[in-house]
Design a binder for these strands. Structure first.
Lengths: 197, 197
DNA sequence: ACCTGAACACCGTTCAAGT
DNA sequence: ACCTGAACACCGTTCAAGT
């Protein structure tokens, strides 16, 4: 591999920035999973000794936090784009979110980060944030469609959890078609169901 | 900690069986996550040297497979119990499954195993199995309630994915109450939604 | 400010040798 | 059959010393 040197050159004068470390770490995370993000490995690929790493970060945990923060920032941009759909009719917003949820997004990053979250408070908080954000958007749309808060909460939760589940499920279940999504959106926004006492 | 010795005594004559290793490994997996399942740690807790471990297993991977196989067997029992609800009315079956999905089941085990599945074919196959099983049960129940297969598939998928998502979500989203589950079951089994052409 | 070099504790794996 | 003991490579962390 000679690409390491290229990577360093691209940075600037041969000294590394925090960005260089997080970029490489995110790459490893997505490509090979949490287990591949190691100090020794990073140093080898970036062509420096471990002492360099420990000048930039206090420990591995700190590097992870930096990576998570970066992903968090990028995610927030994507989410705010979702929010800027505010003028569209609610039904359309839900359809767009449902499509996006199923689409080939960066699920691999989210999955990896979610694994990570189980052993890292910081990452967990970041993920919880974006979860609640999506949930809130769906809930609002449903309430604007005339659902009371109880109904909106239940349906928004169902969709949000399903989205998370879709990211984590093995591909054994049938992947929803566009028709399925149409059905799903109509279903989620349909009239209050007959209450059976 | 003196419980290690107790653990060994409980086994029998002081020599360890494969069961002893997998039991302790599962415990560590659930309590402290994938990262805690290490050869050195296990040996320390079981009061043997590493050589003992490597007599029982070829490597860490083999231990993992053994743990997964055990969990797989236990899961299959739970699933077949679900299937034996066949005589109950479909609506009741769905309610039971939904409750079970949300209940404090061994989510920690499932989550850990699912992480594991990403790097282990065997574990992945096991999990795919149980996913499809649950999906099938829900779908059948919905069809017996008079839904056509398209509608049943969509709704069953929604619930199954939501169940998976619930296991993986950070606890930031509102945990469904029993009332919510009632609503949810009624919602899922409600009349075909108004089609908008 | 940014990095090297060497050191230490810890983990995974192997293997000859013990009972 | 089941385990010990010692060895080796590898990783995380620290720190004095270099530029």
């Amino acid at each position: 591999m000679t690409s390491e040197t290229v990577q360093r050159r691209a940075t600037g004068a041969g000294r590394l920035s925090t960005q260089d470390w997080t970029t490489r770490a995110l790459q490893l995370l997505v490509d090979e999973g949490v287990g591949a993000v190691k100090v020794a490995r990073l140093c080898r690929e970036l062509g420096v000794t471990k002492g360099s790493f420990y000048w930039h970060f206090h420990d591995l945990e700190a590097l992870k936090k930096a990576v998570a923060d970066r992903w968090c920032a990028e995610t927030r941009v994507a989410l705010s784009e979702m929010a800027s759909l505010g003028d569209l009719p609610p039904l359309e917003r839900i359809r767009i979110m449902a499509t996006q949820l199923v689409d080939d997004r960066s699920w691999s990053v989210e999955r990896a980060l979610r694994d990570w979250a189980r052993s890292d408070e910081q990452v967990a908080a970041t993920i919880a944030d974006s979860e609640q954000h999506v949930f809130g958007l769906v809930q609002d749309a449903l309430e604007q469609l005339g659902h009371d808060s109880r109904s909106a909460r239940m349906r928004a939760g169902l969709l949000t959890y399903a989205g998370i589940g879709f990211a984590h499920g093995q591909q054994s279940l049938p992947k929803p078609t566009l028709e399925d999504i149409d059905d799903l959106v109509n279903f989620l926004s349909s009239e209050i169901e007959a209450r059976r006492p």
